[in-house]
């Protein structure tokens, strides 16, 4: 049985989620100890448990230690079953993190799957729906996997209640993917998603973007008022290059100034453009497991703790050859052989 030290590296939920995906993909059981041991509330929290339960469901796994506060978990996956699934995430936790756990598994099966998710869709500590939809899925498509995501209703913290439908058309053998040059920036598109908030908030965010990035656009083209159950607001900047589209986000919460929400997003875009590494920090993170099967190489910004941890976890499960080449202070080349 594969043993994972949960306190290693990033030391949080990411190790657990990656381990679950890899365990199912490689059909190897694992035991993880010291789950989130350095955190203020150690052990499994609600959202982690939801991921464990989702993984258990799609792989008919046997589990030990699947309760809140548990610092040890044993996971024995059986046969993966594609099909229709419904996962509801409590306390407006991110649907996307649960999807992130099961998607790499279901996309490598023989038959289609359809997942209905309910919970948070635009959470600050997780990739938002739009990131997966616009940045991540197109790359999967290049690998040969056709995934369609539909946002039926966004879910913002704290009300949650977002609804997402994901259709996975799997592919047994993936095409290799190489993203190694930044290319030309064709456009930067701002978009603001909001619910149950005054329009003034949106105007302030867009005017900040207009000023700081020197863009010209019509507010009406960039404004999407949604039917979320509670109030919520997110700013998106989509950087379109020759290669692909990379999205960045600014998350609003009660008490945070609209200008600051926009500014957070603008800063990320400026860093991205200055760095000129096509695969940004968050995307790299998401791609490590799929790339292990697709092969190829990615030109990334310096690896985040999340990515480094992911690579280590991958190495525990598979004898994968992942070469990390730090080209310079701003560029790292990841080669999956």
């Amino acid at each position: 049985m594969i043993k994972i030290d949960g306190s290693f590296g990033e030391g949080g939920g990411q190790i657990l989620r990656s381990s679950l995906s890899l365990s199912m993909l490689t059909k190897q059981s694992f035991e993880i100890n010291n789950i989130r041991s350095g955190r203020s509330k150690p052990g499994l929290l609600r959202q982690h448990l939801t991921a464990v339960k989702a993984a258990t469901q799609i792989s008919n796994a046997k589990v030990e230690g699947d309760y809140i506060g548990s610092t040890t978990l044993k996971f024995f996956p059986q046969e993966i079953v594609s099909g229709k699934y419904e996962f509801k995430i409590g306390s407006a936790g991110s649907c996307m993190l649960v999807l992130q756990t099961v998607l790499p598994v279901l996309m490598l099966q023989e038959s289609k799957s359809e997942i209905y998710l309910e919970g948070g869709t635009h959470n600050p500590m997780a990739p938002p729906f739009d990131f997966l939809d616009k940045t991540f899925l197109p790359i999967l498509k290049k690998m040969g996997v056709d995934v369609n995501m539909k946002l039926l209703r966004p879910g913002f913290y704290p009300a949650g209640g977002g609804q997402v439908l994901v259709e996975i058309n799997p592919c047994k053998t993936l095409n290799s993917v190489n993203i190694d040059s930044f290319g030309e920036i064709n456009s930067i598109k701002p978009r603001v998603l909001f619910s149950n908030l005054p329009h003034q908030v949106v105007r302030r965010e867009l005017s900040t973007i207009r000023k700081k990035l020197n863009l010209s656009f019509d507010d009406r083209d960039c404004t999407i008022e949604t039917n979320a159950l509670g109030p919520g607001n997110i700013v998106e900047l989509e950087v379109e290059t020759d290669q692909f589209n990379q999205c960045f986000y600014g998350f609003a919460f009660k008490g945070k100034k609209a200008e600051l929400v926009a500014q957070n997003c603008i800063d990320q875009v400026k860093d991205y453009i200055a760095c000129k590494a096509p695969v940004g920090e968050y995307l790299c993170d998401q791609l490590i497991i799929p790339m292990m099967y697709a092969k190829g190489h990615l030109l990334c910004s310096p690896l985040s703790m999340h990515s480094k941890t992911n690579i280590e976890v991958v190495k525990k499960f598979v004898d994968a050859k992942i070469v990390v080449e730090e080209l310079n202070e701003q560029h790292t080349l990841l080669r999956f052989l």
């Binding site: 448990l49 809140i68 409590g90």
Partner: peptide
């Protein structure tokens, strides 16, 4: 109304904790 979610509502909060379900 939707803004109730911005309010402190004890019964809702009791069921929103990430370490108590």
């Amino acid at each position: 109304n939707p803004h109730r979610w911005e309010k402190w509502r004890p019964t809702i909060d009791l069921h929103s904790f990430d370490d108590l379900v």
